[in-house]
Design a protein around this nucleic acid. Structure first.
Lengths: 207, 207, 207, 207
DNA sequence: AATGAATGAGAATTCATTCAT
DNA sequence: CATGAATGAATTCTCATTCAT
């Protein structure tokens, strides 16, 4: 089949593409538009136009506009986690303070980079759930990740950890909270700032 | 029937009420409906029906549905602040640790009581502003309040305070974050929990 | 107020009309369009355009397009009944055979005139009910009317009536059935035809 | 997995079936769904899913959803006629009254059994045609069948028949009409009822 | 102050049908 | 024969807001 296609330079755009490709194209279009114009202001037509497909095609891949948001949210969390994981992995396995600092640093940096998308996908998520606006899958996954570092450090004697859940929550919240403020203050360089935050977190841990 | 009504002067509900009363009735109706059905799902008609007035009357008191939300938000913040203020005022003026603990305790308790309304008014505020989801008037007012306690304690030598803004932000965020979690966990009694949080905050302050 | 209006010739079309008038205008527009283009093919916009109001006005008066159909159906039945009633009332009170003949004659004639509307409102009614497509309010009301004539005649000894319900049903059905056929055959004059039908009905009654 | 499948020749469901079988499977699926959910509410996808084929396969067998309805209608009428024919054939050739009674009896019984499908296929037929709702192929075929009995009886002197068309129409209509009522009344046993109807029909025939 | 009839822009979603493979 | 991805037209209903009375 490639051969047959080779005969005609490229004039025929394949109308049908691998599902994965179409899906990515649609998600990319949606993400861009949501970021540019906002979610409400973006119509499904806008998305399909930008993705170069018919409106109905959207509904082949997503049951509703809302599910697109959910898919974007899942992808966002996945990438966020991977980003922190990669930063932490650069530290020596036993350098627990280093790992925690790396986690905080990466969290601040990544959030600073992506907070607009974060806000879009999660603010809108909440609404539909209609219940606990507070319970957010992103948060849980990240808390687990942080919890592992805290537990590792405690096991190695790097710090006491009488209340693991509380500690993880406070660090997580504090990091997000101060980063929100840094965003509002339009902070450019995050490293020194992140170091201060990490210091405060370590202090809170009792060491 | 009009004639009959004319015979008995009193039974007819006054068509006109003091503006303040009408305003309260409208806000009360809106608050209840927003809480019960959500903001989007509540129409201006729903509000006026529950308040027992005609639709147009709404627009005598609020330029738009959105302003109603803003008014509700302002009232919420005002009450929230007053609630914390009252709790703090019960402590001795120089008992800085006590004041901070009281602030944390009251914050947890009040937020636990009112988070649904908090979420409604602030989530929607953000959304419509469409911009920085991060800047929240509630937060600022409360940060100022907390900042005063931190500064007072620092001046009195109760704790060091090299970075007042950072400290206030981290405490504020941590308190809200862990309280969100307590909400999700359906915690009933907040006092022991709040004490732990206060401990961690004091530790973070370096003492 | 009329005086004030008199000052300005007529340029100001009153935007607001008595509810009854608006309702009639909307129903008239809908009836015409349903007849001309069919129910499905008629959009709510078509109706409001023809009625000279905004689209939203439709929904002030009818909760849905479907309710419009129901209202039209109710009006149809009402008028149908009144038409038969008037024809029967022209006969002497004790002339039972004459009354029955008048009823049959009027039924045939009225149905011949209005069957298109009948079909539109009732065929679509059924659908939504989704249940017994057979049970139709029009039919019941008319059966009651016919039943009264049959019972009157029986009481007066004009005919036996061992099974009143069965007789009424058969006459009703037969009249409608043969009239449907007359419609298909594009019969113009119905009187002779109706007389034959009435004869057969009387014969079925046993005389 | 293809390899594994290749090992056992039989277990793979044949992708290709005799056209007649596929057609029956599709019609059966459609009939069930139409009966269960209604025609509009049933999508072509629903039908192919239930029939276990791809959507495109539907269009191998039916040019449109509408033709499926037509095919179902034709099959319905065919079976209805056959059912009456079989009942009539049980009577002696010269027993005209018996034949007519048998026809009425079978008509009532069969209609009582199948009216839901009858209504579905014919109501929708009409609707889409959008024209004379009155002309119905089922009816015509059955009228011919009834006409033959009436003519036979008349020729044999069993009854007069001055207006064969009118008589057939009235009997047909009356039988359907009263049966509709029996359906609404949820009548279970139809034999006595059918006998009364037949009596009235014979009376109408003048004997 | 109060009313409530009237407005009209606005968008998500469905689904029969096609056609390249 | 069979597939199923892609199409895209088409329409209901909502509701914040206005304004004449």
């Amino acid at each position: 089949m490639p051969d047959t296609a080779a005969a005609t330079p490229a004039p025929v755009r394949p109308r049908t593409k691998p599902a994965e490709v179409r899906l990515d194209e649609l998600m990319a279009a949606a993400e861009r538009l949501f970021l540019d114009k906002g979610v409400e202001a973006t119509t499904v037509s806008d998305i399909t136009t930008l993705a170069g497909v018919a409106k109905g095609t959207f509904y082949h891949y997503f049951p509703s506009k809302h599910e697109m948001l959910a898919a974007l949210a899942a992808r966002y969390t996945e990438r966020f986690l991977a980003s922190l994981e990669a930063a932490v992995a650069l530290c020596m396995p036993h350098d627990w303070e280093g790992r925690l600092r790396a986690w905080v640093q990466a969290n601040v940096a990544t959030y600073l980079d992506t907070w607009r998308l974060h806000d879009i996908v999660y603010t809108h998520q909440r609404r539909s759930i209609g219940i606990d606006p507070v319970d957010n899958p992103d948060k849980n996954a990240i808390l687990v990740q942080l919890g592992a570092i805290l537990a590792g450090g405690a096991a190695a004697g790097a710090w006491p950890l009488p209340q693991p859940r509380l500690a993880a929550l406070m660090i997580y919240s504090a990091v997000h909270g101060v980063t929100d403020d840094a965003i509002a203050a339009q902070l450019q360089d995050s490293s020194a700032f992140a170091a201060d935050v990490a210091d405060a977190c370590l202090r809170m841990l009792g060491r």
